[in-house]
Design a binder for these strands. Structure first.
Lengths: 146, 146
DNA sequence: TGACATTAAATGCAATCGCATCTAATTACA
DNA sequence: TGTAATTAGATGCGATTGCATTTAATGTCA
């Protein structure tokens, strides 16, 4: 088993970081420009909305979004303090809570999407074909952790 | 010109973020575990070392690494305070400075690399072929800003 | 069962980030 | 050339992150 990555692997990693950073910077910039909260809020709201009426556990969110426990905890706090999600005691597990999206949360996510979408289209959609995007996604997926 | 990204583009972006986050988390974890500073220090040291004896301008570093101006300014401060780089007045431009790597900086970067390399190999190298890594890099490159 | 390990989530505190602004030097150009 | 506009970099201050620890509830297993 090799111990050192090949040049190609290192280069792919560098490109991965730079590209992600670049696209993220433009998205965050556009969102802020439009008066919206950071992208992380959108990510949380989307997952919570997908959880429907039964809600989502913070722990699951954490793993889904790959955020540190304390970061997610406080991110959820902030979003809740702004009224976009509701945090309730979990009926199944006394230690945990369950998050559901509020009506204003639905409104926010719906208003954020056009801005987010336009930024994505401009930063990525206009630069690769759909087939290339699919290949890219597949390659990235193969790197995912076991 | 389309205004909304296709499903494939959105999916590629999601994968891009998650994969980058996952790999970055493991690298940062391994570096810390080994008692080293964050990856950003390595990035800076590498660029500065590549600048050789003539040094590197913070502004160039900033664009290369896609960091915000104030973040790079303070990052450079911290690295300098730890003695790994030297900041001198630029001879060409009275506003700016020029960074060069110190002997201990060279030592640090050399000791960090094996840990960084092993993490990269484990997180990426063992999961894709060299050809796939090259394709990945090329696709990411095509997303780069004009 | 009952003690012990594990897990979900919160939190105090220090470090870092983001924003807005400032300073000093350089560039543009009437 | 003199003045306005731009550029490189630093910095005060509030917000967020990271680390370590805490609290309360579950799981485990003799």
């Amino acid at each position: 088993m090799k111990r050192k990555p090949s040049e190609k692997v290192v280069n792919a990693w560098i490109r991965l970081v730079r590209t992600q950073r670049m696209v993220l910077n433009t998205i965050e910039g556009d969102l802020k420009q439009a008066g919206f909260p950071p992208l992380a809020w959108y990510d949380v709201l989307l997952e919570v909305r997908n959880g429907g009426t039964s809600g989502v556990r913070p722990k699951d969110l954490q793993e889904q979004l790959l955020l540190a426990q304390y970061n997610l905890s406080r991110l959820v706090d902030r979003i809740e303090n702004n009224g976009y999600i509701v945090k309730a005691q979990s009926p199944d597990d006394g230690r945990g809570s369950v998050l559901t999206i509020s009506q204003t949360g639905r409104g926010l996510i719906d208003r954020m999407w056009p801005v987010y979408a336009a930024a994505l289209q401009h930063a990525i959609g206009e630069r690769v074909t759909d087939a290339e995007a699919a290949t890219l996604a597949a390659l990235l997926e193969s790197i995912r952790s076991v």
